[in-house]
Amino acid sequence: MEQTRIPLVDLKNISIAFGGIRAVDDASVDLYPGEVVALLGHNGAGKSTLIKILSGAYKRDSGAIFVRGEEAQISNPRDAKKYGIETIYQTLALADNVDAAANLFLGREIMTAYGTLDDVAMEAEARKVMGRLNPRFQRFKEPVSKLSGGQRQSVAIARAILFNARILIMDEPTAALGPQETAQVGELVKQLKADGIGIFLISHDIHDVFDLADRVCVMKNGQVVGTARTQDVTKDEVLGMIILGKCPPGAIPGPGAMQIAA
């Protein structure tokens, strides 16, 4: 069934090296509308690097990116945003010295008729979107450096959903959030999924992943171990993929799958 549909994003044979390190090595993964694909792997497996190539933060050494079946030219973050790709970075990527509204609209400010910044309108919009994520958040006037880790994360998430993303990349979006805020992000993911948005979700919390994701894609040492639908594999099998690189029968093996000695 899936073969007939066109994937929203198709990353094909992506590689990038930093100095001598092959951070991502011949990785391929795809994403369909309304689908959540979890990217899993140990620390340093290359997850963030792979999605940063999609978001335009890094330039790949080789491979191709297809968006809705057409090859996409993504060489900087602006290009990616034109394709409706929004990203919540692991490092949050907030300008600490300006307030939440300025961060939400950074690069896409609302302007008045006279071509000046419309701070009041931006703050009003910021209040709306933050209300969806973290209703108790009130500190709109302070620079984000004064916010708590979780509040900062909420700002980063709000920024990604503010501009009608078609493709959302979430790199450990709930790492700093409390249980209630995490649940709220889970709700948000379901809501966005229902709207037909495709989501790449990177998380180390395997329970979260099984609750939210339709498929998992496991990486190890820059390579894809395998991809599987969550209903076809167990949590233990996925852990085996992450730790040992062992591809279970329910998964489609990738180049990084452990070769079973003959």
């Binding site: 973050p77 907030l94 010295n97 300006v98």
Partner: peptide, 21 residues
């Protein structure tokens, strides 16, 4: 102005400003 906002954002976090396009 946008320009001024960007100057401050770059000063706060050049990497973030770059990622914001």
């Amino acid at each position: 102005t946008r320009f001024g906002r960007y100057v401050f954002a770059i000063g706060g976090n050049p990497e973030a400003a770059n990622l914001a396009g």
